[in-house]
């Protein structure tokens, strides 16, 4: 492989060791030997992804708050409906949990430059996302309510709909990364992107499980 992996290469301050030492008037700070691909928290896209998850997480949090706020406006919960059926929801929750494995695998192998493992991992992850999306369609049919019935039903549909939007986005993103992995363009930066894609998948799984607790859990004991 043409690339080489170095754990940490400091920039050179002329004869200086660190930037935080008193300046002894070097003229240049030579950064030519610094890495050009960074994985994990050093990567700028990783940071943007964190911000993106903060935005989306805030949206989910506000929808959760909306759910509990509307709960206080009704004596029965669910009001006049059976709780959503468990079959597809629980199956999908299990799929989400198992899908963490390929995501973890991609995240782990990408910094090693193991393109084959990343390609296979992305394919498996995309298959998981595809199956989860298919089960999600069935979930909609067993919610035991329609969005236009009342505020409870609206909230349930928007919660699961919002998460489905994230699921489909992630499915497409994983498929695109898989397509890139079939080409020579799968070099350092794209491998870093694949690892960041796994972080986002974790987010989709965690929010999905919380949505499941709300929709399938709190409707039974709240």
């Amino acid at each position: 492989m043409a690339t080489r992996a170095i754990s940490d290469t400091p920039a050179k301050w002329g004869d200086m060791g660190s930037i935080n030492e008193p300046i002894r008037r070097p003229l240049t700070l030579d950064v030519s030997s610094l890495p050009s691909v960074a994985f994990g928290h050093r990567n700028t896209t990783w940071l943007a992804n964190v911000f993106y998850m903060a935005i989306e997480g805030m949206m989910f949090a506000l929808m959760f708050a909306t759910y509990f706020y509307l709960r206080t406006r009704s004596t029965d919960w669910p009001p006049g409906h059976l709780p959503p059926a468990l079959t597809y929801g629980v199956t999908n929750a299990l799929i989400f949990v198992f899908s963490l494995a390929p995501a973890w695998w991609v995240r782990r192998r990408a910094p090693e430059g193991d393109r084959r493992a990343v390609r296979n991992g992305l394919l498996v992850l995309a298959l998981f996302a595809l199956v989860a999306t298919a089960f999600r369609v069935f979930e909609f049919t067993t919610l035991n309510c329609r969005w236009s019935d009342d505020a409870y039903s609206s909230t349930v549909w928007v919660l699961i709909g919002m998460h489905s939007g994230h699921l489909v986005t992630e499915l497409i993103e994983t498929l695109v990364l898989f397509a890139i992995s079939l080409t020579p363009k799968m070099e350092g930066t794209r491998l870093a992107d694949a690892a960041i894609n796994s972080d986002y998948w974790y987010f989709v799984v965690i929010t999905g499980l919380i949505v499941d607790v709300l929709i399938y859990g709190t409707t039974r004991f709240l």
Partner: peptide
Amino acid sequence: LDRLVGTHFFNPAQGGDVLL
């Protein structure tokens, strides 16, 4: 959504709430 597809988030008659 309330306006376009008939959800009831802000409709008190169907368990919604305007102060929300």
